[in-house]
């Protein structure tokens, strides 16, 4: 009885053609999850999936943004800064 998969790239855990269907049933994961702590990596309900099923929603480029915000660099800030500077200088002279 050979364990070799036809393609040689899939694990020999099944000789049937479909791997996915045989994976743990959802029912099986439920009680286990209840036993585990809330910040533990969960077992996946299926063993394997296609790249389409891993698709990251939305355009990946919009998911990360720059850490500064130029809209915020307003007149307001430079006015406040001047005010503060005056205060600091006044404080020094005292």
């Amino acid at each position: 009885m050979s364990a070799a998969p036809a393609s040689g790239t899939a694990p020999p855990t099944t000789k049937a053609t479909s791997t996915d269907k045989n994976a743990d049933s959802p029912k099986e994961t439920k009680p286990a999850a209840a036993l585990e702590e809330d910040d533990e990596f969960e077992d996946f309900p299926v063993e394997n999936w296609t790249q389409e099923e891993a698709e990251v929603p939305a355009d990946n480029t919009h998911l990360w943004e720059e850490s500064w915000d130029d809209d915020d660099t307003s007149e307001d800030f430079s006015a406040q800064l001047k005010e503060e500077l005056k205060k600091v200088e006044a404080g020094k002279k005292r």
Binding site: M1, A3, T14, K27, E47
Partner: peptide, 15 residues
């Protein structure tokens, strides 16, 4: 008989 590893493992499931 089918050489189905996952199926076999289900017979040893404690749930």
């Amino acid at each position: 008989g089918e050489g189905d590893g996952y199926g076999l493992s289900m017979t040893l499931c404690p749930i």
